[in-house]
């Protein structure tokens, strides 16, 4: 059984209450179509189960297969430095159908980032390292493709729809 390594820590982007009973970690890639399909379902899970859910996203860009996956992860992290990681995360998935190298500045403006700062941060080594650390965590945790989900620290064998189903059944 594969487990999450390392555990959730202060480097993570976390949505929801610390007191939530279910912690979901997604390893995802902003260019992966399956992750794009999972995005609205994750939103629905968060809405349906509210305070019971804590959601964490870690990067797992398949950079050779998806040329914009790594730059998109950088954009999300750079937005994170201005406390807008989730805004960029959402914008990237909502605009996945037109993902390209020019999209990041546009999204940065849309969500109200300081553009100059965003561009400067986008070339930071620290951000690159953070994404590589996330990837490393995925590899160690047994991620075999994207998206991969972990529920309360254990790998969940299924996609977002299966996850929703499982939560619904266990809530009944």
């Amino acid at each position: 059984m594969s487990t999450l390594k390392p555990e959730i820590n202060d480097q993570d982007h976390i949505q929801g209450d610390d007191s939530a009973s279910v912690t979901i970690v997604e390893f995802g890639d902003y260019q992966c179509p399956y992750c794009g399909n999972a995005y609205p379902i994750m939103k629905e899970i968060e809405e349906t189960f509210g305070h019971q859910i804590r959601f964490i996203f870690r990067h797992f860009p398949l950079a050779n297969a998806h040329e914009f996956a790594f730059p998109a992860a950088i954009a999300a992290e750079a937005a994170g430095l201005q406390d807008k990681f989730w805004e960029m995360h959402d914008a990237l998935y909502e605009n996945q159908y037109r993902l390209n190298g020019e999209l990041f500045d546009e999204l940065a403006e849309t969500i109200g980032l300081d553009l100059e700062q965003f561009q400067q941060d986008s070339s930071s080594e620290e951000i690159k390292r953070k994404i590589e650390d996330d990837f490393d965590s995925g590899v160690r945790s047994g991620v075999n493709g994207t998206p991969s989900f972990y529920v309360n620290g254990t790998k969940f064998d299924g996609g977002a729809t299966d996850l929703y189903q499982m939560l619904k059944e266990s809530a009944e």
Partner: peptide, 16 residues
């Protein structure tokens, strides 16, 4: 399919 493809994963791991 690529996102769940084993070879695509190993391709990202060559430096490891």
């Amino acid at each position: 399919p690529v996102c769940s493809d084993q070879m695509a994963l190993y391709n990202e791991m060559l430096k490891y």
